[in-house]
Design a protein around this nucleic acid. Structure first.
Length: 509
RNA sequence: GGGCGCGUAGCUCAAUGGUAGAGCAGUGGCCUUUUAAGCCAUUGGUUGAGGGUUCGACUCCCCCCGCGCUCACCA
């Protein structure tokens, strides 16, 4: 990539045009624009006028937008401009704007420029509603050409020619990607709609949206390594949060019965198709609910969200038809393992025995993993990928769920479920542990850890225990990755497609 | 971190050891109802970086960088 001072030949030509415009007393970057109609409004107004048959009252409009195509035919020019609501054709004729202005447009306006045009709406000979331009002006000149994308309509199908497709360029220069690929803009409209729908659903259920710290002195609430940062004046290392859980549950102690937060989590882990170092989570906590009620609420919330965002509860993800509108199958973890991994967990009460059984299935087994971790690995390898339709897996090992409440009749199993769709973990929830003494013991259990390295041992959050000692109502908690939900609703195969500026390796250019 | 693949003009892609090309975009010209407008002409390249083999390298080898897929890692 050239340095910013090294311009391509095309850019040099454009810079010359900028100077030429200035030489004619035209500011290529004026401060003010005007518009009377968006493209969509102009088209609607024109069709309304046509249907009334009122030829006398022409629709006069001033439109703004970005030049996306230009066809110069001697004394007339056809061009399309695109704004935030669509695109519309401009028709410039020497008879209307004058020869000098026509040549100005032809010689100094380029694809990618932002322009303003005023005129009357009319229909061209081929029937396309267009603006018969009487006057136009430059709003912002583009120096670098957009990665050209041309569309052709063939029998109603849009065929794109030479669209920007290189994933690296698309992610590193998302602005260019968005500018030329409308379907990318649509992904992020859907993402916003998902957030809106989730907020609407939770607000209607009496939840309070809150904001808790991103900078943590003690990280916790999830199984992940943190990013570390530093406060200069306080001379103190801080962690970017890996979850909101411990702060949100403190709020239940404060008599806020139902709280949620939508925000960013940061996990210092590998990057792949479903993991970005920073990602967006929804967590909610609901006093007096247990995990069964949260399961119910999850079904309702996602069905509601799908209806709001997609207009229905069915959608296609990577060629699979997904149905969110029915109650999800609920499979107890040990039954799922028995069915899909053909391992009876009751026959393997310790890590060594389970590891042996897993090796017999041809799985790579981490020799230092605890039994709980092995079960988690087993789920990931053989069980979870089987659930294409929304499915709850419930009742997890206590060892890997230090914040969840045990089953009344079985202390080593906790009231926890995960929701899986299309083989992806979408959400994770449990009946929250609210016994401060039990919680302290669980923290200490973790501190001992499975391996010798301290890296896996989480620090004890004393203040969280103090809060719990004041009394925490029984409650159900829930966490869901917004990015993955957006992948599902937009049928994108990788998380990078649903994050505007996904993390990429640093590159010198 | 391992394996496999990719990196050529602004964009999308050709060229498999023998003069780096096409379409679009750009530039010059013709054209008053086009829509991937058309027609004529034309500019544009350190083939990701570096090294090696060879008379000759986009092509083969080594190393580095980046991206993709995948496996591993990830209380």
């Amino acid at each position: 990539m050239a340095k910013i001072s090294n311009f391509s030949d095309i850019e040099k030509v454009r810079l010359e045009k900028i100077e030429a415009l200035r030489g004619r007393g035209i500011n290529p970057f004026p401060a003010k624009a005007q518009r009377t109609h968006t493209s969509a409004e102009a088209l609607a107004a024109f069709e309304a006028q046509e249907s009334k048959g009122d030829k006398a009252k022409a629709v006069v409009a001033t439109l703004v937008g970005r030049l996306r195509s230009m066809r110069v035919m001697g004394k007339i020019i056809f061009a399309h401009i695109e704004d935030g609501w669509g695109s519309i054709q401009l028709f410039l004729r020497a008879d209307d704007v004058g020869q000098v202005q026509l040549e100005l447009f032809r010689d100094y306006y380029d694809l990618g420029d932002f322009v303003q045009a005023t005129g009357e709406m009319f229909r061209t000979r081929t029937g396309e509603p267009s603006l018969k331009v009487a006057d136009f002006t430059m709003l912002a000149k583009a120096v670098t050409p957009l990665p050209a994308a041309k569309d052709e309509e063939v029998e109603g199908e849009i065929v794109r020619h030479a669209a920007l497709t290189d994933p690296e360029t698309r992610y590193r220069q998302r602005y260019a990607d968005l500018a030329v690929n409308p379907e990318v803009r649509e992904v992020f409209r859907i993402r916003a709609a998902i957030n809106r729908a989730l907020r609407s659903f939770l607000d209607n259920q009496g939840f309070l949206e809150v904001e808790t710290p991103v900078l943590h002195q003690i990280y916790g609430g999830a199984a992940a390594r943190p990013f570390i940062t530093h406060h200069n004046q306080l001379k103190q290392d801080l962690f970017l949060r890996i979850s909101f859980e411990l702060y949100l549950k403190r709020l239940l102690v404060g008599n806020l019965e139902r709280v949620y937060e939508i925000g960013r989590d940061f996990r210092n882990e590998g990057v792949d198709r479903t993991h970005n170092p920073e990602f967006t989570m929804l967590e909610f906590y609901m006093a007096y609910a247990n995990y069964e009620q949260v399961m119910q609420l999850t079904e309702e919330m996602l069905a509601f969200t799908a209806k709001e965002v997609l207009g229905g509860t069915k959608f296609t993800y990577q060629r699979n038809e997904i149905e969110l509108g029915v109650s999800w199958p609920r499979i107890e973890l040990k039954d799922g393992v028995a069915e899909f991994a053909d391992i009876n967990l009751d026959d393997h009460p310790d890590a060594a025995s389970l590891a042996k059984a897993m090796r017999a299935k041809g799985l790579d087994v981490n020799p230092t993993a605890s039994r709980g971790k092995l079960i988690d690995d087993l789920l990931g390898a053989l069980v979870e990928p089987r659930f294409i339709q929304p499915t709850f897996i419930y009742n997890y090992p206590r060892e890997i769920s230090p914040l969840a409440k045990s089953l009344p009749h079985d202390p080593v199993i906790v009231e926890r479920f995960e929701g899986h769709i299309a083989g992806m973990e979408i959400c994770n929830a449990f009946s929250e542990l609210n016994d401060p003494l039990d919680q302290e013991a669980r923290f200490q259990e973790l501190g001992r850890g499975s391996a010798s390295d301290d890296e896996n041992a989480h620090p004890m959050d004393e203040d969280y225990l103090r809060a719990m000692r004041y009394g925490m109502p029984p409650n159900g908690g829930f966490g869901m990755g917004i990015d993955r939900l957006t992948m599902l609703f937009t049928d994108r195969a990788t998380i990078r497609e649903v994050i505007l500026f996904p993390h990429l390796r640093q590159r010198e250019d």
